[in-house]
Amino acid sequence: MKNPFKNMRFWAVAAFVLSLCVFSSCDSDNDDEVLLGEWQKSSDFAGVARSSAVSFVIDGKGYVGTGHDGSKRLKDFWVFNPENGDWKRLPDLPGPARSGAVGFSANGKGYIGTGYDGNGYLKDFYEFDPNAGEGNGEWVQIEDFPATARYGAIAMSLANKGYVGAGFDGNYLKDFWQYDPATATWTEQVSLKGAKRLNGFAFTVNGKGYVGGGQNNSVYQTDLLEFDPATGEWSNKKGLEEADRAGEEFPVSRMYGTAFTINNNAYLVGGTAGGTSALADVWKYDPLSDTWTQLNVFKGGLRVGAVGFGIGESGYVGLGNSGSFYADDFWKLNPTLIVEK
């Protein structure tokens, strides 16, 4: 089977060229521009550098694991405490090592499943209880994801339930499923509106879920979808294209972008917009006005396949790769500070 996570070796040169503009301001007219969003170096990830890992948050702590280090898949699992910056290793994820999996938290527990193990696509799923195992947490295998095995899916948490959908199983997908921890059951939901997609981004704000980006048949998707768990229905927000947002600023559509939520806004960082290009741009999305605002660039540089999560008033982004370079750093975003560009 062809490896779907084969490194894009030519990214390294293109990333360097792009970084000259990202960090030196290619437009001299914008030298005095000020933008929101201050990035500060956080505590480095304690495991090996990797990309295409998964993350979720439980009780104000970030959980990170799995991924690909450039040569092999991984199954180690870690917790980050933002109060003191400590990383602690927890029991490894059971089952095969993997990359391109999904993770979500629901009802005080974390969940990881699907992905690619280097030989085939996966559909197994595992539940992590942080309060079991004498404080180190404990894994239990739950019912497999009921649809086809896949990688590059999207996942989100809403109202103490988890949602998983889309991705690639040999074909592009748009199905959508709910997992209810209270009954330990999967239930099929209404499929995503519009196109199928691989490696899209997803986030939740104010009790609703949002999905955008990704690729379908080599085309980058520009739509932005909103899911209401109360009705089980999808609706379209304005897309990431000039036809929908004339006169507005908005991010280019992408895959492998990193999305997270702080308070009532979502944030989108990095990814790739096609070809050999990686991105370091940062955008804030306000769902009430359906508008995007550009923030200061990500100080960690050009990055695809990173993980991100919001805790309290801050966002955290780390790991990922740019070409053959794999990262193990983490960065903290204060979205309200104004910083001169």
Rank of each mutant, 00 (worst) to 15 (best):
K2S: 09
N7T: 14
V13K: 10
A14F: 11
S24E: 08
S28I: 13
S28L: 13
D29F: 12
D32A: 08
L36I: 01
E38N: 11
E38V: 04
W39S: 01
D44S: 14
D44F: 08
F45Y: 12
A46V: 05
S51P: 02
V54A: 07
S55L: 02
F56T: 12
I58G: 00
D59N: 15
Y63K: 04
H68Y: 15
S71M: 10
F77G: 05
F80D: 07
F80L: 05
N84V: 09
W87G: 08
K88N: 14
D92Y: 03
L93F: 06
P94G: 07
P96D: 09
A97I: 01
R98F: 01
S99D: 14
K109W: 00
K109A: 08
G110H: 01
Y111G: 08
Y111P: 02
G115C: 09
Y116A: 02
Y116F: 11
G120N: 12
K123Y: 07
E127R: 13
D129C: 09
N131T: 11
G133H: 05
E134D: 15
E134R: 15
E138L: 13
W139K: 01
V140R: 15
I142V: 14
A147H: 03
A147S: 14
Y151N: 11
G152N: 11
G152I: 09
S157G: 10
N160A: 08
N160W: 04
G162T: 09
G165M: 02
G165A: 13
A166F: 04
G167K: 06
G167D: 10
G170I: 04
F176S: 03
Y179I: 04
P181Q: 09
T183L: 07
A184P: 02
W186A: 12
W186V: 05
E188V: 12
L192E: 00
G194Y: 05
A195V: 14
R197S: 04
G200A: 01
F201E: 03
F203Q: 02
V205T: 08
N206I: 08
G207N: 11
G209D: 04
G209H: 01
V211S: 02
G212D: 04
G212F: 03
S218C: 09
A230Q: 11
T231W: 09
T231V: 14
E233Q: 15
W234F: 07
K238C: 03
A243K: 15
R245L: 08
A246V: 13
E248K: 06
F250M: 09
P251Y: 08
P251Q: 11
T258N: 05
F260T: 04
N265T: 14
Y267I: 09
L268G: 02
V269R: 00
G271Q: 02
G274A: 05
T276S: 14
W283R: 05
Y285Q: 03
S289D: 09
W292D: 06
W292S: 07
T293Q: 11
T293L: 12
Q294Y: 05
F298D: 00
R303Y: 03
G308L: 00
G308C: 09
G310F: 00
G310Q: 00
I311C: 02
Y316W: 01
G323V: 07
F325G: 00
D328G: 13
F330K: 02
K332S: 13
K332T: 12
N334M: 08
E340A: 11
